[in-house]
Write a protein that binds this DNA or RNA. Structure first.
Lengths: 217, 217
DNA sequence: CCGGGGTTCCCTCTCGCGGGGGAGGGGGTC
DNA sequence: GACCCCCTCCCCCGCGAGAGGGAACCCCGG
């Protein structure tokens, strides 16, 4: 049950680095590489990877269009992680909207990149594994099979706060709703923003929508 | 082609007031009234109104649940306008999420209430008539048939700004994106918040999502 | 028993956001 | 021409938000 990964990045150095840390794990393997978005659909069809690590900024066809194209055309598509150099990259939201299952910064520590690959391969969303958290809440803390804990996952309380943030509540209002002090809410909000790599509550709410943590309509 | 309106409010006085101003118009007519959410589905089935003016806070079954129920069960459902007493009512977002096509404050001036009814009856969303604005942009300024202009509609520039707000941009970043000064952006943002009756940019973005001005996924 | 994560609460500090004004120019209608 | 709307830009001001510390409690697991 090794997880098959396809690397997509226009810089050979990046691909080599990612391939090195991935191949060092025995439950992960790199089945192919692509240097451009245009090559991706063919490679996906041919290699049937479980996870695609896709750079956002590429010549010819960028990661967003490539993501959209794969998810539109390939039946049983792979999970796609969008990789970007800068946090708060302007394409991050577009990428998630295009159907990506998470995003990573290139400077993220290798162990976390590996954990991220395993998580999305197992069907979790990188930022908001709502299903997992629900499972853990309903079926007791014995939830996920070993080692799947990732430090960026939101806690239950943080989920409560984010849900209220996504209803337009201010910190003071959230404090009233949850019967805690405003300072506590500020702490939670700060942790949420850090985990989501969001700059402010607006970006956090956007991510909540784009990753279906919150569902409109 | 008179527009049939169903009034739903637990206070007879409110219903009477609304009925008075609506019946004074010859293109609008009140086909029925209901004092409780539980009565609504039956009345909708029986009277087939074009528009439902629905109070949010009602005993037994509130406006949100009633809205959801109607839209779930009635084929070719009416357009629903949620009416509330206080701005920034905590139920507003829930109502829009339940599928309401807009919301109004009870203290809104009568002419605007009438215009709102006409707008939603013609298929526009009250806050974000994106379709109309697109039509106007594509088919020239001859867009909507007479008199449909409502002062709460967003201008094209405001739409640009809101779209960028919904991408998580700060005012300064929006200014760069649009090649204008930050002060100009602040002006637009202020106007947007006023028109949307939103308290801050987060609420504005939420409304943008809930009314499908922005579409996730 | 001790460690770690989660929740709660406190402090200070900075800064962007939003409210309140005003003002000028362009383009449209009446 | 007068009017109105939109877009642009400016001022001041108050406040909430977020960053960056710290600290206490509980519960669970090693």
């Amino acid at each position: 049950m090794t997880i098959k990964v396809l690397l997509v990045d226009d810089e050979r150095l990046i691909r080599a680095g990612l391939a090195a840390i991935i191949e060092a794990e025995d439950d992960l393997t790199v089945v192919g590489e692509a240097a451009d978005g245009t090559e991706v659909p063919g490679e996906v069809h041919r290699l049937r990877p479980d996870v695609v690590l896709m750079d956002v900024r590429m010549p010819r066809l960028d990661g967003i269009q490539a993501t959209r194209h794969i998810l539109d055309t390939v039946p049983g598509p792979p999970r796609i992680i969008v990789v970007t150099t800068f946090e708060n990259d302007e394409y991050v939201y577009d990428a998630l909207k295009a159907g990506a299952h998470g995003f990573l910064l290139k400077r993220t520590r290798p162990e976390e990149i590996l954990q991220a690959i395993r998580m999305v391969a197992h069907g979790d969303s990188l930022l908001f594994p709502a299903a997992i958290r629900e499972l853990a809440a309903h079926h007791g803390p014995s939830g996920g099979r070993g080692g799947a804990r990732w430090h960026e996952r939101l806690t239950e309380r943080e989920g409560d706060v984010l849900r209220l943030m996504a209803k337009g509540r201010s910190n003071a209002e959230i404090a009233q709703d949850l019967f805690v002090s405003p300072q506590t809410v500020k702490t939670h909000v700060g942790n949420i923003l850090a985990k989501l790599q969001a700059r402010d509550r607006t970006q956090a709410v956007i991510l909540a929508y784009e990753t279906s943590f919150i569902t409109p309509g």
